[in-house]
């Protein structure tokens, strides 16, 4: 290292020509790119493109049959039981998304605002609130299924000890409470994520703005409502899109809380589980149907993400 840095000054005059004279040969460039390119193209891009093609073919087990046009797509909406499970799972995903926006992301924003101001134990709270994010979604699900167990679960035990025994119930066994519980457990896991994103957004807002408002007599709430919140619009957009993508891909956490079939009575069934069952618990033609479902899910998630992003960008430009 010292030898190299020692020569630095002498050679500085040559830097201007670097693009032409020092460009590595094509072979060198290719060799550097090759490992990443091969891995990524063979195991990621190629299967994604194939999913599109497979959705229009008939399958018999692992063997691809004839081209069938849109028949697989039609089957998704006409063949029982998937024709019933698919719309139900879709609705659950929509509830999941709305619930997460209202509970998890609102809490995340609140924590970000509270922890942005100088405060004792700021770092401690930030670390603690982010901690559950590290745990595997599956482990989080199993952890809470034990916590919420009707007989031996600490949650019901606590309620009974507090004299609120009438509130104790089989949280995950009752179709009325199962999905809300999934939303809450998921929020417990992820709340640190919007908190950190909003926190970074708040840190990017110039303190001069807050100071000026404070001198004008604005309260903390007014500063938040009229200065910080509007300036957070781009971050709210990012959080909304990421929440949407995350919720529509949910798998491990729902599996651990409600099993592969979304028990009780399909109350926690979501698209991720339907997709898995269609592909790997279906009949001989499962792979064609699953590919069609994959294409639909991709189109839906992609379109909505783009729309949400465009909407937030327009909102942002209108404010300027």
């Amino acid at each position: 290292m010292t030898a190299i840095t020692g020569q630095k000054d002498e050679k500085r005059g040559q830097t201007a020509r670097r693009r032409n004279t020092l460009m590595p040969s094509r072979l060198t460039i290719a060799l550097f790119l090759l490992p990443a390119f091969l891995l990524y193209t063979i195991f990621m891009i190629y299967p994604l493109v194939q999913a599109l093609i497979f959705s229009t073919f008939e399958f018999n087990g692992l063997v691809r049959g004839a081209f069938v046009g849109l028949q697989n797509f039609e089957q998704l909406f006409t063949r029982y039981p998937i024709s019933e499970q698919l719309p139900r799972a879709f609705v659950h995903n929509v509830y999941f998304f709305i619930g997460t926006m209202l509970i998890q992301n609102t809490l995340g924003l609140l924590f970000a605002v509270l922890l942005h101001r100088p405060r004792f134990g700021k770092r401690f709270f930030r670390v603690v609130f982010t901690l559950p994010y590290l745990i595997s979604p599956l482990v989080v699900g199993y952890l809470w299924s034990l916590m919420l167990n009707p007989l031996f679960g600490p949650v019901n035990a606590t309620l009974r000890n507090l004299g609120l025994g009438s509130l104790a119930r089989p949280w995950l066994g009752d179709p009325a409470t199962a999905l809300p519980v999934v939303i809450l457990v998921n929020a417990w896991m992820w709340v640190g994520f919007p908190m950190l994103l909003f926190g970074a957004g708040l840190a990017g807002i110039e303190d001069d703005l807050r100071e000026a408002a404070r001198i004008d007599g604005a309260s903390n709430w007014q500063i938040f409502r009229w200065i910080e919140f509007p300036l957070l619009t781009p971050v709210i957009g990012i959080v909304t899109v990421l929440t949407f993508i995350g919720n529509f891909n949910a798998f491990g956490i729902v599996w651990a809380l409600g099993g592969v079939d979304g028990t009780p009575a399909g109350a926690t069934d979501v698209l991720g589980l339907v997709f898995f069952r269609t592909a790997f618990r279906g009949g001989a033609d499962a792979f064609g149907l699953a590919s069609a479902l994959a294409v639909l899910m991709f189109l839906f998630i992609f379109t909505v993400s783009v729309l949400v992003q465009t909407w937030f960008r327009r909102l942002e430009s209108r404010m300027q």
Binding site: Q50, A51, L62, F251, F287, A290
Partner: peptide, 23 residues
Amino acid sequence: FSSFFVAGLTLPFRLAIVPLFLL
């Protein structure tokens, strides 16, 4: 190549499980 690699950040890769399984 830069945008080709970065595109993968947004792709819902799990949905490609069937072709991946066959591959």
